[in-house]
Design a binder for these strands. Structure first.
Lengths: 225, 225
DNA sequence: AAGGGAGAGATTGTCGATAAAATGAAGTAC
DNA sequence: GTACTTCATTTTATCGACAATCTCTCCCTT
């Protein structure tokens, strides 16, 4: 009896600041808000129909997340994209992910194995039917890589990993399209999940490292023609 | 000519939201704001003499940092301390720090070696003259461990590391005092910096892992008598 | 051409009003 | 006595107007 008149997400415990955060995040990651773009409060108010106070709170959170740059008395901008920063980000991501992967492979139980199989199946489907840059593919990719490490046993390691993955996703989504890839991503994903299910930590780490590095090199070559 | 009448930090580009963030952070880490304590805006306004809007923005940032819990329509609280979470945190911290340490040892140049020597000297002094929990010791400790990994070559890895270190510091500062330690922290620190300067990555990683793990176990034994 | 404002425009912060939600205390039915 | 309502109180979240502060540009003086 309450499903008809719901002008905004009626999720329990949600505030306008939360909604603004989640929408801005989505739009920045998808490239809808361009890197370097100034985020003027007045404009955002019109765009999102949300008042200044919740918007400012959301922008502060996003600046802690690394998606937005806040400069005192000079407002907010979408964090710029920089090939060197993506290299840096990739290095950090590989470092964190390798450790998480080793821990997950060492400690994961049956539930984890099940989620790995499930995510691999959906990833294979997405690799066949869609391509990088689409919402569907990106979501499958996010879920796939997260499933591999989800049993690492540390919520904090996962939280850190998720943050880095989010930043990397923005780089990929914005840069993709101009990249004519010769890679077989389906094969790479399959190899990773095979190694994970075989509990071969060293191979899984090596493959994942290569997987992320290749993406980084690919985007680098696009940025510097 | 502007150093006399400065009621608030006159640092360029600083806003009240920044000041509120930094003060709240300091007070939470030092244990001045107790774990689990409710952070009512009205009360904080009186305490810090800052309006509601900048305070809310600061609290949102702190919630992204992990020091504050924000629950929609139920306000903000200082993140609680939980021995299990500290174990989790320590695991994540060790994972990140090991990778950063390996990278720094592999890539560090002369400047880095110099900063390691300098930080070790000051750490040794602090280990002799102060004890864990004091501002002086904690600052030396923070600088010491950061110096070891500062040449890792990834700003993002450092940023993540700093965030975890900050959270861990709060656990240590709040829990210390009740702990009657039998450790020789000076010796542990010396061993670490020796291994680092000898470019012995494996030993340095092993010693750092043990160093952090011992702290975690010590605090665990305090929490469950 | 360098330096120093003046002033326009943005950003940040304050305050009070109001809406929305959670809390807690009675009260009521069973 | 327990569980469920109701209702007043308190807390939180949001808005909108205004004030204060800062930034940046442009123009003027020297």
């Amino acid at each position: 009896m309450d499903a008809i008149l719901t002008p905004l997400e009626p999720e329990p415990g949600s505030t306008l600041a939360d909604i603004a955060w989640s929408r801005l995040k989505r739009d920045i990651i998808s490239g809808d808000r361009k890197p370097g773009e100034r985020l003027r409060i007045e404009r955002l108010r019109e765009l999102y129909g949300i008042g200044a106070s919740p918007l400012r709170e959301a922008l502060q959170r996003l600046s802690a997340d690394g998606l937005v740059i806040a400069e005192g008395n000079r407002g907010f901008t979408v964090a710029p994209l920089d090939p060197d920063e993506f290299r840096d980000l990739t290095r950090a991501r590989i470092a964190v992910e390798r450790e998480a992967l080793r821990l997950a492979i060492a400690q994961g139980g049956n539930d984890w194995e099940g989620s790995v199989v499930s995510a691999s199946y959906l990833m294979a489907k997405a690799d066949r039917e869609t391509s990088p840059g689409t919402d569907a593919w990106e979501q499958a990719n996010t879920t796939f890589h997260r499933a591999m490490v989800s049993a690492c046993g540390s919520q904090w390691l996962l939280r850190v990993r998720d943050g880095l993955q989010m930043l990397a996703e923005r780089y990929r989504r914005v840069s993709v399209g101009s990249a004519r890839s010769t890679r077989d991503l389906g094969a790479e994903h399959r190899a990773i999940s095979d190694a994970v299910l075989a509990r071969d930590a060293e191979t899984a780490c090596a493959l994942t490292t290569e997987h992320y590095s290749k993406t980084e090199e690919e985007l680098r070559s696009v940025a510097q023609p």
